[in-house]
């Protein structure tokens, strides 16, 4: 199972995402932002970091990278895509996911071990969890406050498109404690917390994050 990990200028957690894919049993494939065509991969991860230094708006420039044109096209026809932190920002900027990520309410960058509730366990990236499960993974961002118009938020809730929610404290002021959302078909997921940093007991607060990467292997086989 080949899972692509895109490196943009300023991507930082690409090595971590590749490691998580490997630990989950997949084969990580390095993808370069400037390439025109997406290699033959079964799913794509957009990693965390500060692509283009967060200049203009976080994720705005990366969303227009050459490779993103084919990612967007293939995602619209069902290619599983996971955007983590900056990757989530890129997906919102690329129009693949609704809403936007703005500066944290307290204006500080914040890194902490964060409790989340998995709201949807039937997306391409969360099938290894059970709905309602509590997991702990690191969160670290300066612009992670999820916002959308009230009507859009209502619609997301109605359609069950909130994938993970902050519990036991909201680290950045995200509306309705939203930590991650999914596309209507459940194939595209974006979240601010970092599951790729919770895949080994030695280096993470837990191994709760591994489920995102094992989920997609199953989802691809099933598809």
């Amino acid at each position: 199972m080949r899972i692509g990990v895109i490196t943009f200028p300023g991507s930082l957690d690409d090595v971590d995402a590749a490691r998580a894919v490997r630990l989950a049993g997949g084969e990580p494939v390095s993808l370069w932002h400037a390439d025109d065509h997406l290699e033959d991969v079964d799913a794509v991860v957009l990693p965390g970091g500060f692509s283009y230094g967060d200049y203009l708006r976080a994720g705005a420039i990366a969303a227009r990278a050459p490779l993103m044109h084919s990612v967007v096209a293939k995602a619209r026809s069902g290619l599983p895509v996971l955007g983590i932190c900056n990757g989530f920002q890129v997906l919102c900027e690329a129009g693949l996911l609704p809403g936007a990520l703005t500066r944290n309410g307290h204006l500080h960058f914040r890194n902490r071990d964060q409790a989340l509730r998995v709201e949807r366990a039937d997306t391409a990236w969360t099938g290894s969890y059970t709905a309602g499960q509590r997991i702990v993974v690191p969160v670290k961002n300066g612009e992670g406050r999820y916002v959308a118009a009230p009507a859009d938020l209502d619609r997301l809730e109605e359609e069950g498109r909130v994938v993970v929610r902050y519990v036991e404290g909201n680290p950045n002021g995200s509306l309705r404690d939203i930590a991650g959302v999914t596309s209507a078909d459940g194939r595209i997921v974006g979240l601010m917390p970092h599951p790729e940093h919770a895949v080994e007991d030695l280096t993470g607060p837990s191994t709760d994050g591994l489920g995102f990467f094992t989920s997609v292997l199953t989802a691809v086989v099933a598809a």
Binding site: L12, V15, N111
Partner: peptide, 12 residues
């Protein structure tokens, strides 16, 4: 809290 301690995944 204002510092990333996880990036690169090797912080023990």
């Amino acid at each position: 809290e204002q510092y990333d301690r996880y990036v690169r995944g090797n912080t023990v």
